[in-house]
Design a protein around this nucleic acid. Structure first.
Lengths: 277, 277
DNA sequence: TGCAGATCGCGCATAAACACGCAATTCTCA
DNA sequence: TGAGAATTGCGTGTTTATGCGCGATCTGCA
C-alpha cells in the first residue's frame, strides 16, 4: 500500500508533490513523522516542517511534536484532492459538453461533482455566460473570470462536498430560470434513473433540474448502470447524457442502449488517446 | 481562431500543441516541471512559463514553483487576493475577535474581506458553530471543518471580491437569524458611519446586520476616519469595533474617541510583537 | 519535580525559479 | 512580396524555496 516505495530519487521532490503525498499518507496512516518524511523526500527537516505548517494552515492536518496527525476531515478529501481518478475521461467529457452550450448569452447551471467542475471550466471559455451553481468550488473557479456572471445558490453546505443544499437552497432555486443544466450524478441507469448517495443533494439537484429547459447529464462510464440511495429524477427529464465509452464494452453499450430507448440522446466520447488531431 | 488554422507543422513544437500536450500529461501525471517540458519541446524555459501562464489563466492548471499541477489538486491559501498587507494587524484583530464569540452553540456571521476572513479562521478554532456568510472564500475555508456548519447566502458574485450580493442575497438573509456578526468595512468614522466602495455590497451587508443581535466591526487602523462611497449603516447599530492602535497615534486616537462617544465599545489591539517586514 | 535529548521556530544566506522588457525571428495575410 | 502580428529567446532585477545554525520549547524518564 505504501507506494512510498522509494523511487530513490536523487533529486528532492517538489513541494506540491510532497504535500499531496503527505496527505495521502495520512489517509492510510493517521500520523506521519517529520524525520521519516524528510528522508523520503530528500529534503531537510526544516523544509518539511514548513510543508506541515502550510497544510495545517489549511486545516488539512494537525501538527504534533515530531510530525502530524490526520484531521478527521482528511479521510474524505475535498474535491480537489480526489480528482486524480479518471481524469482523462472527465476531460474528454468536458470537451464534448462545451459543445452543448449555444454561442451567445445563455444561462448555464452546474450541480456539484468533479466532472461538472471540469465541464464548468471548459464551458466558460466560450464567451459571455451567466452561471448558476450550488457548488462552492465551481463558484470559486469562475468568479475570477470577468466575462462570466456567477450566481450562487445559497444553502447549507454538506461537509465533504462543497455542495449547498437544503430547503433554503430550494427556495432560492425557485426564483431562477435556467437554460441548460449540467448534472453530475453518482449513478445513472434505465431502471433507477439519476441517483446519488445523499438525499439532500438529490432534492436540491432535482429542484435545479425542474427550473431548466434542457438537462445534460455528465457521468463517466463507471456510473452507468449504477443505482445509489437517493433518486434525483427519472430519465425522462434528461435530454442528453455525455459519457465515455468505457473499457468493458459489453455492459456499457447494453446500458447505453437501454438509456437511448428512453429517449435520451447519448454522446459517448473516447477518452484522450495519445494525441488529438 | 489562432489554432483553428492548424495546418502543416514541422517546426519544433507549436504553442497550441505544447499546451495540449501539457494538459494531457497532467491527466496522467498530476504535476509537471518547467525544465523537463522545456527540454521535451526544445524551447526555452521562458516560453514554457508563458505557456503555463496562459493555461493557468484558463484555470486548466495551477502554477507552482518549478512547474504546475493539475487544477483539482492545487492547494492554495484561499485568501490570497490581497497579499500580505497589514497581516500582523489583521492577525491581532482576529485574535481579539475570537474572544467576542461565546462558548457553546452560536450563530456567527461574516461579511467579506480579508480581515473577516482571518477572523473566521480564528473564531472557528473554538468549538462547534453555525456560520453564515456571503463570502465565497470564507465558505470554502470553513467547509473543510467538520465541527462547523456553514450556511452560504446565495446571490450574485461581484467580480474581484468573492462576495455574494443583490436582491436574491437579501431575500435569503431575511430568513436567517444571526447571533454575532463580524463586519468588514472599507471605512469607519464617527461622521460617515460604516462605508464601503460598492453600493450592492453595502446593501447586502446592511441586510445581514439587520438580522444580527450583536454587531462587531473589524477594521485595521487604516480604515479609521475614512469615508467611502456607499454607506452600510450608521454607527449606532455597532456594538463593538475591533481595530489596532496604528502607527500615527494622533489621528487614530482622536477618531477612536469620537467613535467611543457614540456608544461603541472599541478594542484596540497592538499588532503582533513579531516584526513586520 | 528536574534533567537530557529531541524537536521546534525563527532569522539569515544561497541558489533556483520567476516576471518583465526588449530585440530578433517567424508567421500570417493581403 | 511586404507590412504587421505573433512567437520566441535573452538579460535584467525580484521573488521564492531551501538548508543551516541558534536559542527556546517540549517529551520522556528518573
Amino acid at each position: 500500500m505504501t507506494e512510498a516505495a522509494d523511487q530513490t530519487k536523487r533529486r528532492p521532490v517538489r513541494r506540491s508533490e510532497r504535500m499531496a503525498a503527505i496527505l495521502e499518507s495520512l489517509t492510510v496512516q493517521s500520523s506521519v513523522e517529520v524525520s521519516l518524511l524528510a528522508t523520503r523526500f530528500a529534503v531537510s527537516e526544516a523544509t518539511l516542517r514548513r510543508d506541515l505548517g502550510l497544510l495545517e494552515e489549511q486545516r488539512l492536518l494537525t501538527r504534533t511534536h515530531g510530525g502530524a496527525v490526520a484531521q478527521d476531515l482528511a479521510f474524505e478529501l475535498p474535491v480537489r484532492y480526489r480528482g486524480t481518478q479518471r481524469r482523462a475521461e472527465k476531460r474528454a467529457i468536458a470537451e464534448a459538453a462545451a459543445a452543448e452550450v449555444p454561442i451567445g448569452p445563455h444561462v448555464v447551471a452546474f450541480t456539484g461533482g468533479t466532472t461538472t467542475s471540469e465541464v464548468a471550466r471548459r464551458v466558460t471559455d466560450h464567451g459571455e455566460l451567466t452561471v448558476v451553481t450550488n457548488a462552492l468550488n465551481i463558484a470559486m473557479d469562475l468568479v475570477l473570470r470577468p466575462q462570466v456572471k456567477v450566481i450562487v445558490v445559497g444553502g447549507v453546505s454538506r461537509p465533504q462536498s462543497y455542495e449547498l443544499v437544503g430547503p433554503w437552497a430550494e427556495d432560492f432555486i425557485a426564483a431562477v430560470n435556467i437554460g441548460t443544466i449540467f448534472v453530475g450524478v453518482d449513478g445513472i441507469s434505465a431502471r433507477g434513473g439519476l441517483t446519488t448517495h445523499d438525499e439532500m443533494e438529490a432534492a436540491t439537484n432535482r429542484a435545479m433540474i425542474d427550473r431548466a429547459e434542457r438537462v445534460v447529464v455528465v457521468a463517466d462510464s463507471s456510473k452507468l448502470g449504477r443505482v445509489m440511495l437517493a433518486r434525483i429524477a427519472a430519465l425522462d427529464v434528461v435530454d442528453v447524457l455525455i459519457t465515455d465509452s468505457g473499457t468493458d464494452v459489453d455492459d456499457t453499450t447494453a446500458e447505453i442502449d437501454a438509456i437511448r430507448a428512453l429517449g435520451v440522446t447519448v454522446v459517448a466520447v473516447t477518452a484522450a488517446p495519445a494525441t488529438e488531431r
